[in-house]
Design a protein around this nucleic acid. Sequence first.
DNA 1: TGTTTTCGTTAGAAGTTATAACGCTCGGCT
DNA 2: AGCCGAGCGTTATAACTTCTAACGAAAACA
Lengths: 225, 225
Amino acid sequence: MAETNAENTGNATTPRERYRAQVREEIKKHAWEQIATAGASALSLNAIAKQMGLSGPALYRYFANRDQLITELVRDAYRSLADAFLASARADGDLADLAHALRRWALDDPQRYLLVYGTPVPGYQAPEDTTGIAGEIMAVLLDACTAAGATTDDERLDERLDAHLAEHSAWAGDHPAPPSALRHALTVWTRLHGVLSLELAGHFTGMGFDPALLYAAETATLTGR
Amino acid sequence: MAETNAENTGNATTPRERYRAQVREEIKKHAWEQIATAGASALSLNAIAKQMGLSGPALYRYFANRDQLITELVRDAYRSLADAFLASARADGDLADLAHALRRWALDDPQRYLLVYGTPVPGYQAPEDTTGIAGEIMAVLLDACTAAGATTDDERLDERLDAHLAEHSAWAGDHPAPPSALRHALTVWTRLHGVLSLELAGHFTGMGFDPALLYAAETATLTGR
DNA sequence: TGTTTTCGTTAGAAGTTATAACGCTCGGCT
DNA sequence: AGCCGAGCGTTATAACTTCTAACGAAAACA
């Protein structure tokens, strides 16, 4: 009766919780494989159960419903990207390294990127912890942009946007970044996402050119050559 | 027996074809309403039939399956964007006007934009005619970029990308745009899409700032202030 | 007036998510 | 050691979905 708050910590205590965590991970593993080949919209709980030798409703002991499973996958994907960013930052990576890490992370599993940054269900609201992880990601980006700082401001007369962002900088948490760095971080985010998402969605296929060069050109302008 | 090639021309001749075209349009109308509220993944043929007072399988007289209906909606969406671009071009619109038209078209029906530029099903291949319409859109963009031309090249030392695009410019058709305009068109496309897609996907919600200002800043740098 | 094409129907198969109720098994506590 | 309850996996079932097949009716055509 007491201590019924399971699934809080990753480290399991009782053997029951250890088994439970293990099965949950296996479910997610199969879910990722299915998503990688058929996309998130085609994810089938029944198919996962069949692959695991279980019968249908057994999975509902581990995930309340399909949406909660997907939500957890999104959370894990966010966590994975945040870890990649933090690793780059710990290795003294600059903004260019961060951009490179982002592209590697995206190409490593395109559907994972699209699950996070692709088309959401209209009413979907991300849970609190994922927005927290998104904050971590943004913090690393803000660090890099603050460090890159004055070297790369080829966009002048953005005082209007800078002023606006200075007024609305709650999203940056308590990060001590100047308004120009806030603007720069947003610009990095949107520009890299612009190239990546179109590439991963297949809108460049058949056009012949190499998306990597386009991405490199964008990172070059963003990091000041 | 003869003349069985219906659905080719939009202008119907026989009353049967007129009725058929009318029902198809009504189906698509309900489909768009459903997509606007619940997204494309939640589109249900059964629900559409019920709304129209029909019973389930009746719709299969008009669309071979769910995927073909969605494909046609994508085609119509492409057509709509192309028309918006052509209208802007006919009104002597420059690159800034084109960017503005794109944003209006996107915000007018976010799910329509996401249906075209959002996450696709992994195996999906766009049919021939939609790629043709995409070519129209790109042609208008290339016109505007060629006209804007030398005024706005704040990105120097992109000779590597320019050379690459000069080699792989089949996607531009036979458009007489210089390599720098090809690069500029791609940059416009990816940067505007970067801001728009993140905005429409709701990744800016809760961050407080106004996405319109971010979009305006990008168009400003793209059009040379 | 007949004939043929087309349309909408119901019936049904094969899926899906999700709930309910039933045992069995394993783990913790006495 | 032994019990006993919590948790797990099962089947059955409901309510969905897409999509096919077969039938009847209505409309267009000759």
